[in-house]
């Protein structure tokens, strides 16, 4: 377990944010951490959707259960958080 800073670029939000997460977090947990700073703050909630994580510019998302430590994501890498169908 180790504190791990990532950059959140959350769909429909206006700014990149510093989000501290943990190397043991799954992608769903990382997404939840990022959502906490954007959804219901400057982004309208979309309860029918799930938020998926991908590297900025990538088409593919990380598997939802993948742990951060296994993802190859580097500290302070910019991640996109996108609303997807559940």
């Amino acid at each position: 377990m180790a504190l791990f800073p990532v950059i959140s670029n959350f769909q429909h939000d206006f700014v990149l944010l510093l989000v501290p997460v943990d190397t043991e977090n799954t992608m769903d947990e990382v997404a939840a951490a990022a959502a906490g700073h954007s959804v219901g703050v400057r982004v309208a909630p979309r309860p029918d959707k799930v938020v998926r994580v991908r590297r900025q510019g990538d088409a593919d998302f990380f598997p939802r259960e993948m742990r951060l430590a296994e993802s190859g994501i580097r500290p302070m890498e910019t991640l996109e958080f996108i609303f997807c169908d559940a």
């Binding site: 670029n9 939000d13 700014v15």
Partner: peptide, 14 residues
């Protein structure tokens, strides 16, 4: 801060 258009014109990028 690094920022751009939110909402339906979302174009924020690093």
């Amino acid at each position: 801060p690094i920022c751009a258009i939110p909402g339906n014109g979302w174009n924020v990028k690093d």
